[in-house]
Every structure is written in structure tokens, then in C-alpha cells.
Computed example of a mutant assay.
Amino acid sequence: MEAADLAQLLTPEGMALLDRTPAVSDGGEIVRVVSRLRSEGHDPGLVAAVLTQAKLRQRALSKFGPFAARMLFTEAGLEQATRLQVAAQHAGRFAAAGLTRVADLGCGIGGDAMAMAALDLDVTAVDRDEVTAAVATHNLSPWDHARVELGDAAAFDLSRVDGVWMDPARRTSGHTNTKRLTDPDEWSPSLDTVFAAATTTPTGVKLGPGVDRDLIPDTAEAQWTSVDREVVELALWFGPLARPGVRRAATVIGPHGVAELTGAADAPDEAVGPIGEYLYEPDGAVIRARLIGDLARSIDGRMLSEGIAYITSDRAVTTPFAQGFRVLDTMPLDVKKLAARLAADGIGTVEIKKRGVDVDPAQFRKRLRLRGRGRVTLVLTRLEGRHTAILCERLADVAG
């Protein structure tokens, strides 16, 4: 979306038209909406801008829920925006630390700033892109204690606030078809600028979950967050925003709510032991935070194999930090023998998981030539130094 498109959209006619245009995703539905709007005599450029927002609102439901129905987006801004349930966790940090004036530097479309404003924090949101700042202004309009400024995050006067939230731009500038930047010096603001701010001001920083761990300062609390089993970010917390004695945290958000595993440092793994009756796959946030050993100890477990993130135990445990499976059998990882076994058992549906083996699950599934009504989970991994297939059933399925 360019500035001219946004200006047209932000007119009374444009907003009224957008508000009565439903969120769309289906191709046929899009054609019908376009035909109806053009038949009503609306400008083709305005119709295109409205339709783009309607499609983005549909996509935004997974991140913003019902709030998406009144928000504006750019394609790149939506892709990079923090999910609202995660942004609420960020805002809660500032509120718990007693920081009432917060700057959201590199605010994007304003997702984090919205969550802060909802907790009655005084928010100054800053972005260097004119269109993005205008979109954020619209999204923050319900709160009179939130404002948007057009400017360079690196030049912001930190003395104006009690705390800072930074989300360095890690993609090239633009509103669509941006490319990822891998060099922290090319981020905006650069990682050096971010860490310099953290030495003087309570600071939270959003980074990609796969960032090089060597870049994490010893003074920061590093918190990896997953939503519905997908690891979505790494947040670094400095000063009073970091919790005493916590340097590693795995926050897991799902149907169970919010659960957290924390540690003072990377946790040593448990020793490797024989496979038990149950197998557990740690959540990705737990793996990224290197708290697998602490999880294993909490469920009386042991590592299945050296350097592989599977835990085995002799008891069934329900935990938000791992998916659990009951072990049915183990076999050598031989596709012909596996195919014969699954055919004999009437297995027609297979979930394939792998760690420590070089296998393409899609191609492997084709070679199994599955037939039947039964289902099973195949865990392809190393066991006692050998490539092994573990036949399992999910504990959730067993319980159901």
C-alpha cells in the first residue's frame, strides 16, 4: 500500500466502504465483491485499496482476533506484527515493573503499542515509514494516551520515557515483497544501538527465535515464546524488566493458556537411558531455551539419545511443555519392513516426526504405501546409535 492509496482509504467514503466490506479470502468471493463495488460507481483505485484491506483483515484474524475487524494493515506490517496474545505478555512486563511511560521504537502497525495502551501505559510509538506510521495511528486511535511519531528509532530521546520496547526491522524497507536481513548491523535500529539503549534504560527487545545465541548478552533474560507449538519470537529483557535469577525462559501459549519454564542458565541434559513406555517431544520454545534437561527431570524422564531433543519416561504425564506419546514398538528404520508392519496392522494414516536422521517425511510416507483405517505416529530417530523407527500413539488420542 502506497501513501496515495492510504490517503484515499482514510477518507470518510473509504472508511465507510471498508467497514461494510466483509473480510474476504476466496477467489470467487473476491470477484463478486469487486464487481459489486465497481457497479456502485466507486473509484477503481479505492476499490483496490478496500479489497486489499479486506483480505489483510481476514489474514489478521489469527493474530488479532476480533480486533482485526477495525484495524488497518500493510502486508509486510502484518507479517512482522506481534500476535496480540504475545503482545499482552510484553505489556504485562512493563506494567509489572511499574514503568508507566513506554516508547515502542520501530512500532510497525502498532500491535505491541495497542497491548500497552490497553493496560493504561502511556505509549509513544515511533516508526520511520510514513505509511506504516499512519496505519499505526489509526490502529491506536481508540486510546488517547497513545501517540505515533514519524522518526528514526535510533534518534529517539530515551529521557522522555521510563522504558523502551524495540522490534528492530530485520527485513528490507517496503510494504510488500521484503527480504530478510541476516546481518545485525543492517537491522534498523542495529543490534549495537539496541544494546546500548539497554545499558541506560529498562529495555525489551523482540528478535527472531533462531537468532545466534552468541549475540545474547549475559545481562539479559532470554525468553522464547511459542504459540500453538510454533516458536514465534525471542524476547530479551534488561534491567527491571528481567526477572531476578532468570536468564532462560520458555513461554508456551496454547489452549491451556500460558505456561512457563524458567532457569538461571542453560539446563544440563539428563543422562541417556533406555526407552520407556512413553516418549515426549519438547515444545520448540523449551528446546530453543535449552531447558530440556529441566523438563526431563520434572517428568522423571531421561534423554532418548545424546544430542537429540526427545525425552523418554516410564510414566504418562500431561504437560504443556511437551507432546506425549505411548510407545507401541521399535523397529530398525527400514522402509520395506515398516511398510509390511503397517499393512499387517491396517494402518492407513501416519504422522511422521524425525530428529537425528536424514529423511524427507513426504517421500518416506509415499514409500510406505499406506492402506487401512488405523493411525499411528512414527518417530524416526537414533536409538542406541542406530537409526530407528518408534511406533507410537499420542497420549491425547489414548485419553480421548
Rank of each mutant, 00 (worst) to 15 (best):
M1T: 03
A3K: 10
A4W: 02
L6H: 07
L9V: 01
L10Y: 00
T11Q: 01
E13H: 10
G14D: 03
D19N: 15
D19R: 15
P22H: 05
S25N: 12
G28L: 14
V34C: 01
V34Q: 07
R36T: 08
E40R: 11
D43K: 13
D43E: 15
A48C: 12
A54V: 01
R59K: 15
G65A: 12
P66Q: 13
F67G: 09
A69P: 05
A69E: 14
L72M: 10
T74V: 11
E75C: 02
A76G: 11
Q80E: 13
A81K: 07
A91M: 08
F94Q: 08
G98I: 11
G98T: 07
D104E: 03
L105I: 07
C107E: 03
C107K: 01
M116E: 06
A125E: 04
V126R: 04
V131W: 00
V131H: 00
V135E: 04
A136R: 06
P142I: 03
V148Y: 12
V148H: 05
E149C: 10
A153R: 02
A154E: 09
A155L: 11
S159T: 15
W165N: 00
M166N: 05
M166H: 07
P168D: 06
T172W: 03
T172Q: 08
H175Q: 15
T176D: 08
N177V: 13
T178S: 08
T178A: 09
L181K: 13
E186T: 11
D192Y: 14
T193Q: 15
T193H: 14
F195S: 12
A197N: 09
A198R: 13
T199C: 05
T200A: 14
T200E: 13
G204L: 01
G208N: 05
P209L: 10
R213C: 03
D214T: 15
L215E: 04
D218F: 08
A220N: 04
S226V: 06
D228S: 11
D228N: 15
V231N: 05
V232C: 10
A235K: 06
W237I: 12
G239E: 14
R248D: 07
A250D: 07
A250S: 02
T251D: 00
H256G: 12
E260V: 14
E260H: 09
G263V: 01
A264W: 02
D266S: 10
D266K: 14
D269C: 05
V272D: 06
V272F: 09
E281L: 07
P282E: 07
D283F: 01
V286L: 10
R288N: 06
R290P: 04
G293D: 06
D294E: 15
A296I: 04
A296F: 06
R297H: 13
S298Q: 04
D300S: 14
G307Q: 03
Y310H: 06
T312R: 02
T318H: 14
T318D: 15
A322Y: 05
Q323W: 10
V327D: 02
L328D: 15
T330S: 12
M331K: 13
L338A: 05
A339R: 15
A339G: 14
D345K: 15
G348H: 12
K354L: 12
K354Y: 09
K354Q: 12
G356W: 07
D358H: 09
Q363W: 09
Q363T: 12
R371C: 01
G372T: 08
R373H: 11
G374A: 08
R375Q: 14
V376F: 00
V376Y: 05
T377H: 10
T381N: 07
L383E: 06
R386T: 10
H387P: 11
I390P: 03
C392E: 06
